[in-house]
């Protein structure tokens, strides 16, 4: 079983925020949601959680609609961060955890564990308004996953954090996935999705433009990158058949080619011309795919 999104459309009046979304998010996996601003990610999450009702279609988790009866199985980190500013971290987390069906003692123990893990045990008696924004975010992430939910929804969990904290929080989320939680998260950072997700979906203006397994998306994208460094002039490659994009750097060129056969023919042509210091065939990055797909949709 899994999280199934079946033909979901959401309209705000005349405006269509999400248009005919159809896919399945497998269990115990991390699923990435990409898309520009206003693409409809947050709206989709709110529909998954039942905060908004879809105009059409339905969303089911393990065969059932998500409602308040299942709230102890669900975790949510909203995009707009916020906690009670005047409450101490302890009271805050214990309250939120109890609303997710945990008992007080268990919640406190878990809270201590997570604060230790995030290297901020001294925050337990601080009021939230005294913490920096990034540290508040740690507290909020704890609030969303302290009850070990089966389904965790994170709306841009890593935005606004320094690199050390990003790694720390990423590790925590990956641990949770390994212990069996299904995680859906949105991000504007391609590398996070590329690094952590097996499946993903790229949305644009409410419609999914790319959806599926990361590896397959890359393979079916077809195009690859070739990066070359050589001791001679490479300008003949700018108009080489099968080369779709050229980027000239200080040391050489990075080409986007339509397939491996083009790369093979390039290397054959290069070798007779002189010494080739570097020739590397790379998978396309998610950024390439995103720019191409979303960019194409813009046109």
């Amino acid at each position: 079983m899994a999280l199934q999104i079946k033909g979901v459309t959401k309209k705000f009046g005349e405006f269509t925020a999400v248009n005919n979304l159809n896919f399945t998010i497998p269990e115990k996996e991390m699923f990435g949601f990409l898309g520009g601003n206003g693409a409809g990610k947050t709206t989709t999450f709110r529909m998954i959680l039942g905060l908004l009702d879809p105009t059409e279609g339905e969303i089911v988790w393990n065969g059932n609609k998500i409602d308040y009866a299942s709230s102890s199985l669900i975790g949510y980190l909203p995009e707009e961060r916020g906690l009670y500013p005047k409450l101490k971290v302890r009271d805050q987390i214990v309250y939120l955890a109890r609303l997710r069906g945990m008992n007080k003692g268990k919640a406190l123990k878990e809270l201590e564990y997570w604060l230790d893990r995030f290297k901020v045990p001294e925050y337990i008696d601080k009021r939230v308004e005294e913490l920096s924004k990034g540290n508040q975010q740690k507290i909020q992430l704890i609030a969303s996953m302290i009850h070990k939910p089966e389904l965790l929804i994170l709306d841009e969990p890593f935005s606004g954090l320094d690199p050390v904290n990003v790694e720390m929080l990423k590790d925590a989320v990956i641990d949770l996935r390994d212990s069996g939680t299904t995680i859906v998260f949105s991000s504007h950072r391609m590398e996070h999705v590329e690094e952590m997700c097996e499946h993903l979906c790229i949305m644009h203006k409410g419609s999914p433009v790319v959806e599926g397994k990361l590896k397959e998306i890359k393979r079916s994208f077809g195009k690859k990158n070739v990066s070359i460094r050589a001791d001679f002039d490479l300008s003949f490659l700018d108009s080489y058949p099968g080369v779709t994009k050229v980027k000239t750097t200080m040391e050489g060129k990075i080409l986007q080619v339509t397939g491996e056969d083009v790369a093979a023919s390039i290397i054959r042509d290069l070798v007779p011309k002189g010494f080739v210091r570097k020739f590397e065939l790379e998978e396309p990055s998610l950024t390439d795919i995103f720019i191409e797909k979303v960019g194409a949709a813009y046109e």
Partner: peptide, 20 residues
């Protein structure tokens, strides 16, 4: 209004029904 403006509300309504 405090719960709403401090944005803690979205967490709350995702775990407890508005009527409750």
């Amino acid at each position: 209004a405090t719960e709403k403006t401090s944005r803690v509300m979205e967490i709350l309504i995702s775990s407890v029904s508005p009527i409750t």
